[in-house]
Write a protein that binds this DNA or RNA. Structure first.
Lengths: 123, 123
DNA sequence: TTCTTAGTTCAACGATCATTGAACAATAGG
DNA sequence: CCTATTGTTCAATGATCGTTGAACTAAGAA
């Protein structure tokens, strides 16, 4: 596993890149879930409701490369956090409005019918 | 010219569609210019600095289909306006933050070196 | 009518996208 | 050691994207 995860510097985060990164239902769901999880980091595995292991890895990389999230290796896991402060500094008010609007979107539910089960609470 | 231009109803405007529509430098420039033009409508021809006639037509259609702008036929022209109220109703604060952030992006300048010349005023 | 202006439509093209499955790497636990 | 667990990488696939140029439509002006 390449341990040097590239993150753009705050000042290198661009609006088109962020908009493109968020213009996908899966990635929007990821940041919505991250946001309503407070400051706590989450792992890739907690998003498997949204797609295959490979797909999540792909989308997480997109969000990281755009500067939307930070990814920190922790053993075999990756701890994901929203880059709230960096985004607020670059595009004031933007992330909050996106999160507020995205929160009302129904998450693509997993292959059972028990509702969100522990989609947000983690496991 | 098909005179029935399809616009999504306000309640059918989705966040992923809007984010995707704005995740392109040319389209971001279009809405930034529209925004700093106040309430006044603009025509496609006023954006030819940003690309060919065909390209502008393509991007304007994308913005319209996503619900970001309204397009009204007026003779052979199309009068473009931002759907400010509809977007504010659906995603409060979103458009303003995007416009504020996009305003500081340098517009792709035309093929001369005189700066922005009449980038906003049209030709 | 003819000519011009404003914009659309179409087919083509190369580029990027999102997904899949198989293989792999790295850590953790027995 | 062996074996899960967690996540990445790769090649392949079909879909969508953004641009181009040519042809076209619609309206206005001479």
């Amino acid at each position: 596993m390449t341990d040097f995860l590239e993150h753009p510097l705050s000042e290198d985060i661009t609006l088109p890149a962020v908009l493109t990164a968020l213009g996908d239902e899966t990635r929007l769901a990821i940041i919505a879930i991250l946001a309503c999880n407070g400051e706590k980091a989450m792992t890739c595995g907690q998003f498997l409701q949204l797609g295959s292991k490979t797909a999540i890895s792909y989308h997480v990389a997109k969000l990281r490369e755009a500067g939307v999230i930070h990814v920190r290796p922790d053993g075999t896991r990756r701890l994901l956090t929203l880059r709230r402060d960096d985004l607020e500094g670059r595009f004031p008010g933007f992330l909050d409005s996106v999160i507020a609007s995205a929160a009302s979107i129904q998450l693509p539910d997993a292959q059972d019918s028990t509702g969100m089960q522990d989609a947000v609470g983690g496991r």
